[in-house]
Each structure stands twice: as C-alpha cells, then as structure tokens.
Simulated scan of single mutants.
Amino acid sequence: MHTFTPTKIPAVMQKFSLLLLLALIVLACGGGEDAAGEAPMAKKSTKEPAAKEINVKKIWKVRCIACHGLYGDMGTNGAANLQESTRDLDYRINIIANGSENGVMTAFGDILTEEEIKAMAEYTMTFKKE
C-alpha cells in the first residue's frame, strides 16, 4: 500500500499551480481588454500642455499650517507671524527654498518646484494685516 507524503507535491500539481498563478496574474492585470466605463486612450496632442495650476492652499495645508497656522499668525516652533512680517517677496522665496539660517524654517527647495515656491511666497504676502 502506498502512503501519501504531504511534503512532496507531484510534478503535475506543480505545473498546474504555476499555470493557475499565471492566469490569476493576467486576470488581475485586466487581460488587455478595456474595462466597462473605462475611456479609450486619448490621442496625443501636438500642442504644448497647459501649465499645471498650482494649488497653494493645498500646499499650505500640507506643508505650512502646522507652524504658521491657517492665517499665518500661529508662530508654533518659532515660525514667523506672516500677518506682521514686512519681508519682501524675494526674501520669502529664498526662505521657502533654502530654509532659515537658524534652522527654524525647513527648506522646501528639494520638495517644491520653483513655480510652487514663488506661488507660496506670493500667497504668504496675502496674510499681511491691512
């Protein structure tokens, strides 16, 4: 009488398992057919793409609000009160890009694009008290 040993899987079962795994991978990737409701690929335009609109409020909420607050006047961790600041745009661009000399302000030059940095500096100017 032959006894089955669970540690050895017959070669046929190994091949079947491999085929089943490959089939599942193909199905998971969509099998190359368009899913229902999925738009076909658009033709490439020869026109230059429009400049990406910068969402300064989103960047502010993600990067700046923790220290400067919603209205730029919170001053957590020694952050400047932007409502009272008299610094010009160029100074603000430099601080956002390179951080402050004393290390209080984080440098965002490697995180944000030049356009985003300028837009953020301009946005901080809107906090000034009139």
Rank of each mutant, 00 (worst) to 15 (best):
T7V: 09
E33M: 12
V56S: 06
T86S: 12
I95C: 01
A35W: 15
G31M: 05
T76H: 15
E48C: 10
K15F: 12
I9W: 07
E116C: 03
N102C: 11
E130T: 03
E101R: 15
K8V: 12
L24V: 11
I111K: 15
I93T: 02
E33N: 12
H68F: 09
S85M: 06
A42L: 11
L22V: 08
L22H: 07
G31A: 04
C29Y: 15
A79G: 03
M105R: 10
K43E: 11
K47L: 13
M105H: 11
E114R: 14
F16S: 01
T126V: 02
E130Q: 02
N81W: 08
E130D: 04
L27H: 07
M120Q: 06
D110H: 15
L70R: 13
M120V: 05
Q83C: 02
V12M: 11
V56P: 03
K52G: 00
A97W: 07
A28L: 14
T3Q: 14
T86V: 11
H68N: 04
L82C: 01
P49L: 08
P6A: 04
P49A: 08
L22A: 10
K52P: 00
E84C: 02
K61C: 00
I93P: 03
V26F: 10
E114L: 10
R92L: 11
E101V: 14
G31D: 01
M125Q: 09
A97T: 09
N94G: 08
T46C: 10
V62R: 13
K43L: 12
S45T: 13
L22K: 06
D88K: 08
T113E: 02
A66Y: 13
Y123R: 05
E33S: 13
D34E: 12
I95N: 04
G72E: 03
Q83L: 04
L24R: 11
Y123C: 01
Y91F: 11
T3V: 13
F108A: 02
P40S: 08
G69S: 07
T126R: 03
Q83I: 01
P6Y: 07
I59S: 03
A28K: 12
P40R: 11
I9M: 04
K61L: 05
G75C: 14
A23Y: 08
D88W: 09
I93M: 07
T106A: 15
V26P: 00
L82V: 00
S100T: 06
A80V: 13
N102T: 13
Y123T: 00
G30Q: 02
Y123I: 03
W60I: 04
C64G: 05
E116I: 01
P49T: 04
A51Y: 07
A79C: 08
M74A: 14
G30C: 04
A42D: 01
K118I: 04
S100K: 05
P6W: 08
I59F: 07
Y91T: 03
A42H: 09
R63M: 15
K8E: 09
H2K: 14
C67G: 08
A66G: 10
F16M: 06
A97L: 03
Q14F: 08
I25S: 09
G32R: 07
P10G: 12
I95A: 09
Y91W: 12
L24S: 13
